[in-house]
Amino acid sequence: MGKTRSRSQRKGDRGTMLLLPTWLVLGGLLLLPLLILLGTSFHPPDDVGNPQAISNWSQFFHSGDWAHNYVQSVRPIYLRVAWRSLWLAAITTGLCLLIGYPVSFYIALIAPQRRKNLLLALAVIPFWTSFLIRISAWRIILQDRGALNALLLHLHLIYEPLRLMDTPLAVLIGLVYGELPFMILPVYASLEKLDRTLLEASSDLGASGRGTFWRVVWPLSMPGVAAGCVLVFIPGIGQFIVSDLLGGSRTMLLGNLVQNQYTSGRDKPLGAAIALELTAAVLAMLIAYAIAAKRRGMEVAL
């Protein structure tokens, strides 16, 4: 007698079938390309920058040529770019925390109930619109003939336009601008979950407003802060648009570096290598965060 499948097993089978098309499509459009990218990162470039076919495989392996691109990728000029990306992402994270936390605090703990959804939506909606357009708006503000300079000149605070475009400062402003909602949301989520009676208890036991904040609110909002920092930092190092539009050639970040190799730099395999190193770094950081969060019993609020 054949083994009949239980109802829940049949449900599971149906579920698995539903997943097949997704696996086909995403596997083919994500996993496969990434693997191929990995493959090309080992090839040397040809004259136009495409990965060159290997004629002699054994010689290729033994001579160590296969690692050529990766070795190249850690040359000082490229390391400087990586360092700059990390630095800027870190400062961006710090600024987003400083600027965003009070907003989350206000919405979660002070704003009247009926306004909360509206305020939160307002903070989040920009995120869903075109990043490109929003950053290009900053060009209008920061240019020599832009709005900011026009205003400062008009108020006689300066007498010559400030050189703001194509500077790390401009990139920083753009990064903070783009990533701020990523900090506000998770911090809001963890503050919203805060048991209000804990605040009352703290007050009852003698803590002033500030005491209650540092001893109760801040520690309990840590999961949200951690999630926010991760959500700001990790996309921050892979940024492309901000530095492309606001940073010029002088503030090149990893994203621009990779794109460069694919266009004027004429070295796609090197670009691939750098891109994959970037991905590996991102994955490593995410895994480290997940492990740390699980160890502390925090929910991974991503």
Binding site: T197, L205, A207
Partner: peptide, 13 residues
Amino acid sequence: PPHLRPVNLVFQH
């Protein structure tokens, strides 16, 4: 304010 009163509260939960 609560933090300056000489009373203390045992909360329901």
